[in-house]
Amino acid sequence: MNAPIILLLLDITPMLPVLEGVVMELQDCALPLLREVIATDKEEVAFKDLDAAILVGSMPRKEGMERKDLLKANVAIFRSQGAALDKYAKKTVHVLVVGNPANTNCLIAAKSAPSIPKENFSCLTRLDHNRACSQVAMRCGVPATHVKNVIIWGNHSSTQYPDVHHCKVSMSSGELACFDAVKDDSWLKGDFIATVQQRGAAVIKARKLSSAMSAAKAICDHMRDIWSGTPEGEFISMGVYSTGNPYGVPEDLIYSFPVQIKDKAWKIVDSLAINDFSKSKMDATAAELMEERDTALAFLAA
């Protein structure tokens, strides 16, 4: 992919001086495909004729804030951004929501942009996907590129389910199923899942800030795969709109599934066997998403 890029950066008015600093840094990178950077506080400028929109900003949870208060604040943000996309962006725009709670924020943005297909909206669970690949790779002593077809099911939250039942690991002895490569079922069903689920909190505890470089890399991976497609026989994780899916996930949710991408269109991988262990964890994260959705939609209707 060698298309030239015009980058539009939107922020609130008080942050424009800081945004100018970001523009300077982008210019100083001398990126070969970057043709222009436009910094603005105006939605009509930022969303005009977009091919891709990456919605990073959201209201972070503050001390003492209940989850319903967080959802209420983010409904206002993503209703506005969804409406701006509906009004100004191309109808073929691909929208990636990163700001948390990403799945529900993505659903609100999609519902606020009725003229854009819901299939064009996705939320970022690639960071969790990459974390899962890395944990398996370190355990097996191989590069992360030797691990494929892990799955993140459900919500980008601590209820997500990192699933390696269909994962393959390339070892010196050949390609093995993940459970055969790791040879530690109790770790894969216990500490591995907890580590991936809680990795974001661990990063915050260590560096006093949320994930930055790894999140940026995951965004790049996600958008690259939308534009370039996934390799034959491989799938990645994306939060996408649930409707008539093969795994019994309730409809009208943004839920992370294994997907394959071709010609900028994703398709849920529908032939995977799901055991009882996996199904219980998939249902638990779906239940959390339904509760989030119902709370957020009540605010949207108010």
Score class of each variant (00 low, 15 high):
Q198R: 05
Q198E: 04
Q198M: 00
Q198P: 00
R199C: 01
R199S: 07
R199P: 00
G200A: 09
G200H: 08
G200Q: 05
A201N: 03
A201Y: 03
A202K: 13
A202F: 03
A202Q: 15
V203R: 07
V203Y: 00
I204T: 08
I204W: 09
K205G: 00
K205I: 01
A206M: 04
A206G: 00
A206S: 14
A206R: 14
R207S: 14
R207M: 13
K208M: 13
K208I: 04
K208Y: 09
K208N: 12
K208V: 07
L209M: 05
L209V: 03
L209H: 04
S210K: 09
S210D: 09
S210I: 10
S211M: 14
S211D: 13
S211Q: 06
S211T: 12
S211K: 08
S211E: 10
M213T: 12
M213E: 08
M213P: 02
M213K: 12
S214Y: 12
A215C: 15
A215D: 03
A215F: 13
A215E: 12
A216N: 10
A216Y: 09
A216E: 04
K217W: 05
K217G: 02
K217Q: 10
K217C: 10
A218M: 03
A218R: 02
A218L: 04
A218V: 01
I219L: 02
C220H: 14
D221F: 04
D221L: 04
H222D: 11
H222N: 10
H222V: 06
M223N: 05
M223A: 06
M223P: 07
R224C: 02
D225I: 06
D225K: 11
D225W: 08
I226R: 11
I226Q: 05
I226K: 04
I226F: 06
I226N: 02
I226G: 00
W227T: 12
W227I: 07
W227D: 05
W227F: 15
W227E: 15
W227Q: 13
S228F: 04
S228E: 15
S228L: 13
S228D: 07
G229M: 11
G229S: 08
G229C: 09
G229P: 08
G229W: 11
T230L: 01
T230P: 00
T230G: 00
T230D: 01
T230M: 02
